[in-house]
Design a binder for these strands. Sequence first.
DNA 1: TTTGCATGCAAAG
DNA 2: TTTGCCTGCAAAC
Length: 323
Amino acid sequence: MPEGHSVHRIARQFAANFEGAPVAVSSPQGRFAAGAAQLDGHEIVQAKAVGKQMFLEFDHGLWLRVHLGMYGAWDFAGDITVDDTLASAKGRMGQTNQRGTVVGAHEDSPWSIGAPRRTRLRMAESEKLEPELETWPPEPVGAVRVRLLTETACADLRGPTACEVQTIEEVDRTIAKLGPDPLVDDVEVGEERFTAVVRKKPTPIALLLMDQSVVSGIGNVYRAELLFRARLDPFRPGREVPEEVVRGLWRDWVHLLRIGVETGQMLTMDDLDPEAYARALASRDDRHWVYHRTGEPCRVCGTGIAMVELGGRKLYWCPTDQV
DNA sequence: TTTGCATGCAAAG
DNA sequence: TTTGCCTGCAAAC
């Protein structure tokens, strides 16, 4: 269940492991057989992420567009190398806590990015112990929509909302519909675009933050946390939010997205004191200000965290602090 | 053991 | 506005 940070990490994985070599493209599940045939045997020349969408450019000018949606995930296998920006996640892999649980198994790792998938993680661990028992290429697990396979690396996609072949014109059209992404667009230009749009709309700011045509990459977790960090009423119409507060939301998104891409986790309490922050890092249940904390006391004022369904998604906020 | 929920979107109705 | 995508997990039986 990825937000923008996961998709940028996936694109970096492809850039580090799949560019510049012929890729066997197949659809073990069958639903993408025609598309796979259009790409099979070509080289990936570029991996690009914009918001929650990822695009792989092949050497004959066709692109693969993937959107993971709620359930989608990529599983990587084989000789997967990570660049420096992903190395911290690799370092956490295989670490165990006192109960023997793999720390970070729910988080993005070099081997699995997207909705939680444990199967491939276990395979990656057993591989270290008994590499001679591993088969290559690995047997597809579940409904694999598309498999990208080089001599040394394998990527399986399951459960995506979107997986299609596009021309460059179609890619451009898709991207044109998206709001600014701090890791794609110049952050100053992005701030102006975001601020101008928000300040015109009568729509509640909570809905605008989730609107991918207003700003790219924010999902339900980051939405709730950004609003709390700004101490902003989620229902305030965009055009009634003071300009400096709107700009602050954008700048905080730039900040949180960078942390998310670096760590593979949606860390939103970095403004805590160091001790509390360390506790938050260590515990999955203690990680957010308001997200998924209905009825629990606000970490600042103690008021019960409120929740309503807005636009089909759950919105969490502190009715006392967010005004 | 079963049920329902979930970090999201697009297509169908 | 509703449905489908797919799967892991937590909560309820």
